[in-house]
Every structure is written in C-alpha cells, then in structure tokens.
Simulated scan of single mutants.
Amino acid sequence: MGKVVFLTGVSRHLGGAVARALAADPEVDRVIGADLFPPPHDIGGAEFVRADIRNPVVGKILTRAEVDTVVHMNMLSTPVAAGGRSSQKEINVIGTMQLLAACQKADSVRHMVVKSSASVYGSSPHDPAVFTEDMNPQVAPRTGFGKDSMEVEGYVRGFGRRRPDVDVAVLRFANIVGPGMRTSLTDYFSLPVVPTPLGYDGRLQFVHEDDAVRALVLATQREGLGTVNVAGDGTLTVRQAVRLAHRAPLPLPRVAGSAVGQLVRRAGLADFSGEQQQFLSFGRSLDTRRMREVLGLEPRFTTREAFVDLVDAGRRGA
C-alpha cells in the first residue's frame, strides 16, 4: 500500500493548496483532509472528512485508513479567525494535544509534519541578528499565537520521545503572504493609514504562499529534518513595506499603540495586537541554511518579491 496522508486545516486557503499538491504527488495514494467545515475551495483529488481534531474520532480515522503521514496545519494565528482568544488557544493547543494522542495510538503513523511559526522566537531588542533553529528566544512570547506555537512544539517534542519510530518535522515559517493569504499582518498593511511604532523600524521576513506549499510537500517526502526555518531571502523594514504597499504611515509612540490597536480591532479592520506591535518594533530574521541543505527548498520568491505579489494582488482586487 502506498502513502496515505492525513491533513488538518484543509478548509483554509493554505491547507487547500497543500491538499491539492499532495493529491497530485504520484508517490501519494490517498489524501484525507479534515476540518470543522467543508472547504470553500477545490482540494483536488483529496477526500474531505468533517472532523474536529479535539474529538477521539480522529484516532479511528487514522487507524481505519492506515494513515502513515500526518500533516498538521490546524493552527490559527489570530483570535478573530477562531472566534476569540479562548477558542484560539483551545484549537491550537488542546487540538494538537488530542491529535498527538491519536497519532500515538495509531501504529500505522510513521511520519509527521507540523506547520509551526517563527513567532516562537519572539521579538525583542536583545535578539540576535539572525535566529538559527537551535536558538531560544531572548524574551519568550507570553501571550497569543507565539505562546501557543511554543506550547505546541513542546507537545510535539514529547510525542517524538514517546514514539521514536515516528519521524517528526517541524517547519517554522516566517509570515506567509501571497494573493490568497489573509492574516493579521496582511490586514495591517491593507489599512489606508498604517500605524507604525515611532522611533522603531523592525526587520520583516516573508515567505510566499507557493513556497510554503512546496516546503510542506517536500517535508512529507524527506526524513530526518527535525526543525527547519522557512523564509524568503532578504528582509524589509516596516517603513519599506508601508511604502511598497502604497500606504500612508502614521508614526505613533508605542504607549499609544495599545489604544489604537483596540480601535482597529473593534472596527474589524485588523487584529493589531500587542504581540504584533512588538514584532513591528523589533522585527525578526531567520537563518535558512537548513531549509536549503536539509529540506532541499530554494524559494522562488524573495521576501520583497513575496510582499510585492501580495500588494499587486490587492490592487488587482484579488
């Protein structure tokens, strides 16, 4: 029997793109995509199963379908997408715990790929110029998606110790952008007037959605990856990105950022959280040598090209 892949988060844009790519892979016999709601987009030859990864029924799916590869993408980066911060944490952390418990019991599982985030490194003025995979954050994220991502990676490491026969890959993505992506950061740069931290100009690194899909597919084909940073070449500062987006900057003292962020969130324009303000102030940059040497990915888009593609798609009305 050939490779059978179980994919979570298939109803979101990136999950659907990965499902289509995996279904088209001649080395994959079957792709099962799971989510709470039916996907609004084409998932190619993948099968859809309406399932909550927090429910024990997932274990039955893994066993009955003899799933050997699990790709976990069901991580929500904003409270808005989850219906609130409590729901976000429950989906991200509790959902991952339940999925890992199901995988631990499924003898057929031999390979796991986890979509994580570079937010685990945090953002602070004490950070190194470039983060490698073996570095710890100088100031660990205390709230939001960064904290969730750190907890999830901790549970994944625990799973790896309990099931040493399962090859585990963790991909730490820089902010993913592209024509089909909508995140708190893309919403931020689409504001008519963009509030920027006065006196700060953080370095930003992006990865194009097409390169993110390629990275996830490659991770299902390779063993011994461990943890890998994934990002496009180069960086942009916040001010450079605002100019490329053809937006007007509004420099604000950081003490005023929280009040402005609350107004922006209440208006439903963007999720301008404290975590994001920290990131925009101090930025983050990733070392991607392992991405090239171990994962075998050469990004087709640089950080600048990925961001310009996002901007161009917005101007076209995509």
Rank of each mutant, 00 (worst) to 15 (best):
D127Q: 15
P128V: 13
S119F: 01
V139G: 04
D107F: 10
K115I: 03
N136C: 04
P125S: 05
D107Q: 13
R110P: 08
G144L: 06
Q104P: 01
Y121C: 08
V139P: 11
M150D: 00
S123C: 12
A102C: 14
P141Y: 07
G144F: 06
S123Y: 11
D127N: 12
K115F: 13
V113K: 12
E133P: 06
S117Q: 04
V113N: 02
D127A: 14
M112G: 01
L99S: 09
R110K: 15
P137H: 09
T132Q: 02
T132L: 01
M97H: 14
G144K: 08
V93K: 08
S108I: 12
T143W: 04
D127T: 14
S116P: 08
F131R: 09
G154P: 12
V109I: 13
L100W: 04
V130F: 12
R142C: 00
H111L: 04
E153F: 06
V114C: 05
V130H: 04
F145R: 00
S108V: 15
S116L: 04
A129S: 10
A102M: 07
N92S: 02
H111N: 05
S117P: 07
L100C: 00
V109C: 03
V93G: 04
V114Q: 09
V152R: 08
V93S: 00
V152G: 06
H111G: 05
G144M: 07
G154S: 10
Y121G: 00
S123I: 06
V113A: 03
A106S: 10
A118H: 04
D148I: 00
A140S: 11
A118D: 08
D107G: 02
V130E: 01
A140V: 14
A118K: 13
D148A: 02
G95S: 11
D127F: 03
F145G: 00
I94D: 07
V109S: 02
A102H: 13
N92A: 04
M150P: 02
D148V: 01
A140K: 14
S116Q: 05
P137G: 05
V114K: 02
I94M: 10
L99R: 15
K105S: 14
P128S: 10
V113G: 03
E153Y: 07
V93A: 09
S119T: 15
N136W: 05
M135H: 12
E151P: 01
N136Y: 09
I94A: 09
E151F: 05
D107P: 01
Q98E: 05
K105H: 14
D107L: 10
N92K: 11
Y121T: 06
V93W: 10
T132H: 07
N136V: 12
I94E: 09
V113E: 00
S123K: 15
T132P: 03
K115A: 11
S117Y: 04
V130Q: 09
R142F: 00
A106K: 13
N92Y: 09
S124T: 15
